[in-house]
């Protein structure tokens, strides 16, 4: 008996390791990422909030309280910019989703050379945006651009047309360029989702007499709905924050016609060195996108419940 007891205590003594406090290891793993996020996300965010309550510029800063926000609230120009931004976002995202759906459906069809078509979709997304936009600048150019030339050749116009020189045409031209950049990724996500739909479902529906369109509506769309909603949210945020496309094409002009919130913020903060006011604009963007995301996530949840398996 005693021998056995001694044996087990000896074993226990041997097994005692160098024990670190509970959870230490977990913190060690998470730590680097937390420091990283702290430095590049959290601190700038806090700093932006602080700056938005100052009149910071190149000459220094002093605390002004809510003044920057009050100015924004009272400015018709700012409310117009917000409205324009949402219109920009809604139109561009809708077009990307519709084009993405059409593209993915075509790429999912069994046609000869399908792999080639799939590769050909990629360039707008793969080419650096700046380079792509220089290309569009030339396309939209009135004197040397292909579009203006074609429009004249068809006979729609009798002189050169500068697409980016007029308020409306500049806005819609920028939308077209933005859709051009954003569609490929949406297409690829939709294509991946469509390929995940079991073939049997289509065959069963085919045997039951469902037409192509019926199958698309009643099987494809519901089956990929969670991906559609996710892509809508993601591309809405990207489009909202789409800066370089507009900046390279129009710098927000003519006369503010393509100035979205993000462009406006840049102009105020970096263009006019009004860091305080710019920070206030940036905070408005953060709040708007946060609200937008909340509404969307709620919606996504609902969609998942409706179209998911359970």
């Amino acid at each position: 008996m005693t021998g056995l007891a001694e044996d087990t205590t000896a074993q226990a003594r041997r097994r005692v390791p160098v024990r670190l406090p509970e959870g230490w290891f977990a913190w060690a793993l998470i730590g680097p990422a937390m420091i990283f996020i702290g430095v590049i996300v959290a601190w700038p965010l806090v700093e932006t909030f602080r700056l938005s309550f100052t009149d910071a510029n190149l000459g220094g800063e002093s605390w002004v309280g809510w003044e920057n926000y009050a100015d924004l609230w009272g400015s018709t120009k700012f409310s117009q910019t917000i409205a324009r931004t949402f219109f920009w976002m809604a139109l561009s995202v809708s077009l990307k989703l519709v084009m993405g759906l059409i593209g993915a459906t075509l790429l999912n069809a069994t046609v000869p050379g399908r792999a080639l078509f799939r590769v050909l979709v990629m360039p707008p997304w793969v080419i650096p945006v700046a380079i792509g936009m220089i290309g569009w600048l030339w396309l939209y150019n009135g004197h040397f651009g292909m579009l203006s030339g074609m429009v004249q050749k068809i006979g729609l116009l009798d002189g050169p047309f500068e697409f980016l020189a007029y308020k409306n045409s500049a806005f819609y031209s920028a939308i077209v360029a933005d859709v051009w950049v954003g569609t490929p990724m949406v297409t690829l996500f939709f294509l991946a989702a469509m390929q995940g739909v079991p073939k049997d479902l289509y065959e069963a529906a085919y045997v039951d007499g469902a037409s192509r369109w019926y199958r698309f509506r009643r099987i494809t769309i519901p089956q990929i709905m969670p991906v559609i909603v996710s892509m809508a949210l993601l591309s809405a945020i990207w489009t909202f924050n789409s800066f370089e496309i507009i900046w390279i094409l129009t710098e927000g002009g003519p006369r503010g016609a393509t100035t979205t919130l993000i462009v406006d913020t840049y102009k105020v903060a970096i263009g006019n060195y009004k860091f305080g006011e710019g920070a206030a604009c940036a905070v408005v963007i953060v709040i708007l996108l946060a609200l937008f995301s909340l509404v969307y996530l709620f919606f996504l949840n609902k969609v998942n419940r409706r179209y998911g398996n359970k």
Binding site: P198, D200, L201, E203, A204, A205, Y206, V207, D208, G209, A210, R218, I219, P222, Q223, M225, R306, Y307, G308, N309
Partner: peptide
Amino acid sequence: PLDRGISMVFQSYALYPHLSVFENIAFP
């Protein structure tokens, strides 16, 4: 297939996961 007057039950069942049992049966 519809004009042949056949119906088919698949190995995987091929049920529409987003539709209720009622709607699955009612599909054709």
